[in-house]
Amino acid sequence: MIGAPVLEISDLTVDYGLGEQAVRAVRSVDLTLHRGEVLGLAGESGSGKSTLAYAMLRLLPPPGVIRSGTVTYHPGAGAPVDVLTLSPAALRRLRWAEVSIVFQGAMNSLNPVHTVAMQLCDVLAAHRPGTTGAGRRRRARELLDLVGISADRLDAYPHQLSGGMRQRVMIAMALALEPRVVVLDEPTTALDVVVQRQILAQLRALRADVGFSVLFITHDLSLLVEFADRIAIMYGGRIVETAPAADLYRDSLHPYSTGLLSSFPALRGPRRERVGIPGSPPDLRNMPTGCTFHPRCPRAFDPCAVSVPELAVPADDAGPGRTVACWLHAERVRRGALS
């Protein structure tokens, strides 16, 4: 059951580089993840999805710089904390224990010269130093069972596992300390569709059993329609639409969301023509004026090239829990048309 906010991102802005040569990759993003929720974050490559995730956990590699914003984490007990202002020691306690991440290309992230058991036990030893070796190995066995891998693979090396199994080991590692939030950054991109579905089914079952919240980042919107409770669409470093997954699939409001949905075939219902999005994602060094999507938008009109639309509740009645940054649904444009 979805509950109160567990992670709130407010006005987060991220640059790569300094001075006049800086490239703005994330632009004033507001996003909230609720307790027990799977929040999907979708968009083309280069839209800022991974940068947002790494920034909120302070994992940005140089020359990434957080320019502004807050990332408020609400623990199970105690006062909320701003992740961006935590000391290194407090940040170390937060990561893995409270908020964990499965990195993009995670199946290649395991150390090739250490066994699965050694790598799982290292996480437990680092964050729970009071545990015994036998206790850590027992927990490692439980974690493998949790993600559907036989315990006899504990002493296997990464090269002895399939890609799907290595990915599951990384998910097990992310769940080792029972975090309240798990960030999945393109966790199934390099896997075939059968293994993708197996891992998603496993994650769905784990979410029901363990009760963690998930921020699921992917360019594959079809996965999110099945797996997420709510979806945020990102383009050019901004959130351009948020909606419950079923509502977005049934009636997307932003033309970019519609383009993403039209680019993959429907598995059920009537056959529909697949239509790609013309053009390419914007050059972050030379962003278009107004709405960043307007050069590619088939429905662009006068205000789109001039003013940036705010992410707000649509003027038309589109249902609860929906926001969109598009002049087609903006109250100001509707008022102007009526005057």
Rank of each mutant, 00 (worst) to 15 (best):
E186R: 09
P187R: 12
P187V: 08
T188N: 03
T189F: 00
T189P: 01
A190L: 03
A190K: 05
L191I: 04
V194Q: 06
V194A: 13
V194I: 14
Q196C: 11
R197M: 11
Q198G: 05
L200S: 09
L200V: 09
Q202L: 15
Q202H: 04
L203C: 05
L203S: 08
A205K: 05
D209K: 15
V210W: 04
V210I: 15
G211K: 12
F212Q: 07
S213Y: 10
S213K: 09
V214D: 09
V214P: 05
L215D: 12
F216W: 13
I217W: 14
T218N: 06
H219N: 13
D220G: 08
L223C: 03
L223D: 04
L224E: 10
L224A: 08
E226D: 14
E226G: 02
F227I: 12
F227G: 10
A228F: 00
R230Q: 04
R230Y: 03
A232R: 08
A232E: 08
I233C: 09
M234I: 14
M234L: 13
Y235L: 09
G236Q: 07
G236W: 09
G237H: 11
I239N: 01
V240G: 01
V240F: 00
E241D: 03
T242A: 00
A243L: 10
P244F: 06
A245F: 01
D247W: 03
D247F: 02
L248M: 12
Y249V: 04
D251A: 15
D251N: 15
S252H: 14
S252E: 11
L253H: 11
L253E: 04
H254Y: 07
H254G: 08
H254F: 03
P255L: 10
S257W: 09
S257A: 14
L260P: 03
L260S: 10
L261C: 06
S262A: 15
S262K: 05
F264Q: 12
A266D: 13
A266H: 02
A266E: 06
A266Q: 11
A266N: 04
L267D: 04
G269Q: 00
G269K: 02
G269F: 03
P270M: 02
R271G: 07
V275T: 14
G276C: 00
I277T: 02
I277Y: 05
G279P: 05
G279K: 12
S280R: 14
S280C: 08
L284I: 01
R285T: 10
R285P: 01
N286I: 00
M287A: 05
C291R: 11
F293L: 15
H294R: 08
P295W: 02
P295E: 03
R296L: 07
R296Y: 07
P298W: 11
A300H: 06
